[in-house]
Design a protein around this nucleic acid. Structure first.
Lengths: 216, 216
DNA sequence: TGGTTAGATGAAGAAAGCTTCAGGTTAGGA
DNA sequence: TCCTAACCTGAAGCTTTCTTCATCTAACCA
């Protein structure tokens, strides 16, 4: 089981004809399904290929190794989430903190929940050595977008925007994880979404006031 | 590589003499070190035994399989954290929400950071199939403690304590994860701790006020 | 229609790790 | 001191999975 292959994410061959594009898509989709049905531990390249309706050989024609396959799926998913966040952040420039809080939470949860299955399936993958790198990278991307948004808020922050952004991100991912870990995520999204918005709002408002509000 | 063995957490033989107790301790400690040095993917029972200064045979005398070994380490760690949380929650009964928030965050972060290395090492393990179960169980334990504490707060909550507790937990674990993922957790504990207390405090205060505070 | 390239196949090679067990060593009581 | 139970050892068996490659088929184009 040679795991430590060069972390090539690139396909060794790019799909050219429609036929092969379909194969690649099927493989990607099958990966998620296998992940959901048998879990990361028992995901094998053969099983993925079988589920995708192709042979292992075909799989290896487009993905240099198992790790790259998993990374591809994760990359694609996180990229979408990050893009959604960036868009929301840009669109909220110049708004109030309250509006920013709501937009941020909504964009994040919507992106994550749009394809709950994928999110759940990839949850386990993301903590692998290779996955962590991708997660970190995507996180930085989101962090930057949030900081830049906060800098344009109507009510200026009195705290380090970097720190505030970090908290917001941690809070969002914390709740999202909790959600995805639960047996029926859909059932709890709405109450948690609302609560998360409240939380983010009051926190941002506190960050706009003087650092140490006097206790009663 | 038969992974699907019965999830026995119990040692197949309990240490009796001091000699064997030392072996078990060494194995447990070695597991963490191997986890830190080569990562979960390349952790092998042989490597753990070697690091512990015993033979693989000895390892298998006390742990039925690799999975049980990992679970043991995780179990021990999470149990300690949960116990610390419970203690803090009991001790805070009847206090103000602000005091509860601070006590909760402090207890959690202190427990997690007391042995940062272990926390970091186990971070990856916790998302394995077997680890998830343990995490869920510990989480429920903490959840119960928090809810019971909140019920005794001087300022009564206007929101579902279950929901509030869930948020608090999500937020804490979210920040903790972020911390442990960073290259130098120690450096960021203090600012994050302070910020987290602010966040928890304002959130709890908002939860004690009427559900929908009028916007300016 | 024929030639060329893209795409697909799957049996088999190779590697690796988990786990066992037969046999040797140590500790502690009678 | 001797005996028994506890403890330790590590080479080897057994499985499993990854990955390759020689070969075959389909698509495109001149």
């Amino acid at each position: 089981m040679p795991r430590s292959s060069p972390a090539l994410l690139e396909p060794r061959k790019w799909p050219v004809q429609a036929r092969s594009t379909a194969s690649v898509d099927a493989i990607l989709e099958a990966t998620i399904q296998v992940l959901l049905s048998v879990g990361k531990e028992r995901l094998t390249t053969t099983r993925v290929a079988q589920r995708a309706g192709v042979s292992v050989g075909t799989l290896y024609q487009y993905f240099p190794n198992k790790s790259a396959l998993l990374q591809s799926v994760l990359q694609r998913h996180l990229s979408r989430v990050a893009a959604a966040l960036e868009e929301a952040c840009i669109q909220q420039r110049g708004s109030s903190l309250q509006s920013m809080a709501a937009a941020l939470i909504n964009a994040f949860l919507d992106a994550k929940m749009q394809d709950i299955k994928t999110s759940v399936a990839l949850y386990a993958v993301s903590s692998d050595v290779d996955g962590a790198k991708i997660v970190r990278h995507t996180s930085k991307r989101a962090h930057k977008a949030i900081v830049e948004m906060l800098a344009t808020a109507r009510e200026p922050l009195r705290k380090d925007p970097q720190l505030v952004a970090t908290l917001l991100q941690s809070v969002m991912t914390g709740v999202s994880r909790r959600l995805l870990e639960s047996p029926a995520p859909e059932k709890h999204v709405e109450p948690l979404r609302h609560e998360l918005i409240v939380l983010a709002t009051v926190y941002l408002e506190a960050a706009a006031k003087p650092p140490h509000p006097p206790a009663p």
